[in-house]
Amino acid sequence: MSENILELKGLKKHFKTTAGGFFSREKAVVKAVDGVDLTIGHGETVGLVGESGCGKTTVGRTVMKIYEPTEGAMLFDGEDITHLSRKDMKPFRSQMQMIFQDPFASLNPRHTVGTIIESSFIIHGVEPEGGRKKAIQDLLDRVGLNPEHINRFPHEFSGGQRQRIGIARALALRPKLIVADEPVSALDVSIQAQVVNLLDDLQKELGLSYLFVAHDLSVVQHISDRVVVMYLGKVMETATTESLFNSPRHPYTKALLSAVPIPDPKIERMRERIILQGDLPSPMNPPAGCVFNTRCWKTQAKCFTDVPQTVEIAPGQTIACHFPEPAN
């Protein structure tokens, strides 16, 4: 067993697209993920956050080999899976599973819950002890659904329950790593907490590792042991949850945290906000130098020319910035 369940080294995923619209054939490259380093230890939850277009979802999908990585290396439990073929991937597939944002879209509406979960067993040729039906019912029970509902269809469940089905399916093959892509953002507030608690419990019981991809920093803060902040395909800051939220050192992390509203009116009235100007630049045409230079309030000449190197600024806290914030 390796020290980490997942290790990404300089991972890149570039997409080729057509730029300039209908009448043009110019080709462009979108650097959705551009050199990401990330490790997840056994039983650890790593939150991957950033705004839309930062590449966090692409990282998740590349890890799952939904996308073929352009460059870099991916190690799963110490074994290089970067360029494995579909066939060679198979033994790893059962060990890493994904949970999706939209639980309805990711469940086949014509299949019963039983069939949906059973398909995982069939694909991997697994015959669980005590038979498939029992295994499925155990799974449903474990994620908080009524085991008797094995023959119901996805539309007979509410949003939160569907997400539980998605989780049950992901757990069927006893994976070691779960990539959860915005697993609660489509759910109602009062349901989000239920699903977050379920993920917490399952981790404790089964020793799972999570790559938790989300834009909601409050949820990420709650569930993660460590957090990776991405911006325009690059990692801005990596730290333990405590360091990151108490003492963010990258200006972008600081701004991002400052933008999250806190459900406490008195705190809100006292708070000084850093309001970033403008929007995310297009990933098709990212700024030279530091990618955050167009919106950063600390930008100096160096930021437009030199790409900042990732350095360890405090134990376990790395950032890519020329002018880090002071520690709190």
């Binding site: 507030v189 009062s190 989000q192 907490a193 977050v196 920093l217 409050s218 949820v219 803060q221 709650h222 949850t241 405590e242 939220f245 108490n246 945290l257 999250v260 806190i262 459900p263 406490d264 705190i267």
Partner: peptide, 11 residues
């Protein structure tokens, strides 16, 4: 509702 939401300022 107020108790169920995680907060960024409460680690």
């Amino acid at each position: 509702l107020l108790n169920s939401i995680p907060r960024v300022d409460k680690l």
